[in-house]
Structure formats: structure tokens, C-alpha cells
Simulated assay, not measured.
Amino acid sequence: MDPIVQYLILSRELLALGHGVLAAQAAHAAVAGYLIAANSDSARAWAGGTFTKILLAADDEAALRAVSAQLASAGIAHKLLEESRLQGKATAIGVAPLPRSTVAPVLGRLPLLR
């Protein structure tokens, strides 16, 4: 079985800003990733199921931007979030809900956020 999941990638730099900022950025990424694909079959199936999300970590803004470029190169729908309150700094990526096998080749090397 190839479950449909939504990946959220957060910059580890957020950890220094506190749990509230981290939670807000994760929520922003989840909504953005869903909205860019809301009319797709995989997003509808995901929304009708368990809403499985997997939180991954990128070391810093540069790493986050590199992941976004890799996702774009692979044709994977995603949204890079840039926080206006942090002078436009990239903080998170919300990936559209997709089968795990579609996204794993790009994101499989990233660690879980801990």
C-alpha cells in the first residue's frame, strides 16, 4: 500500500524561536500544501482519510531553499513559506498531499523533526 501523506519541512532555526512559532509555521505549511492541490484526487483522498502528516527538518534557511528547488525540479507541488515578520526568511515548506512513493525520493534523506 502506498499511503497518501503530507510532508511538512521546517527549519531547525525555528526551534530557537519557541514552540508557538514552530507550531504556527507547521500549521501554515499544512494549510498551504493542501490548498495548492485541493482539487486533486490525492488531496481529496487524503482529506477523506487520516490527514497523515510527516514533519521533517532542514538545518537552516539555505537548506530549506535547496529542498524547495529539488521539489520544484522533480515537479512536486509545494509551497515555500517566507515569514514577513522575520524579514522574508524562509521558515517551512508545505508539500501537497501525495503518495509517499512520489515524494520519498526527494525527501527521504531528511530527518524527522525532533
Rank of each mutant, 00 (worst) to 15 (best):
E13T: 11
L14E: 04
I54L: 01
R12C: 11
H19E: 14
P3G: 08
S101E: 12
R109Q: 12
R85L: 09
I54H: 02
M1W: 07
L55M: 10
V5D: 05
V67T: 13
E61G: 07
R44C: 03
A77C: 06
L81M: 13
A30E: 14
R44H: 12
Q25W: 05
V67P: 08
S40Y: 07
L80C: 07
G94N: 07
A27L: 10
K53V: 05
A43S: 15
V103H: 00
L113Q: 11
A32F: 10
K53Y: 01
A16Y: 03
E13L: 11
V67E: 10
L10K: 11
T91I: 07
A23W: 00
S73P: 02
G20S: 13
S101I: 08
A16C: 00
Q70V: 01
R44V: 05
A72H: 14
A43E: 06
G33R: 11
G33H: 08
L112H: 05
Q25M: 13
R65G: 04
Q6F: 04
R85S: 15
S84T: 12
K89H: 09
L71R: 01
L64G: 09
A77W: 00
H19T: 13
Y34M: 06
A58G: 03
A63D: 02
A58E: 06
L112R: 10
F51N: 14
L110P: 00
A32N: 11
A24D: 14
G88P: 11
V67M: 08
A16D: 12
L35A: 14
A77P: 14
I93T: 08
Q6Y: 05
A24G: 09
Q87W: 12
L10Y: 05
A30D: 14
A27Y: 05
A47K: 14
Q6V: 02
V95S: 07
L22G: 09
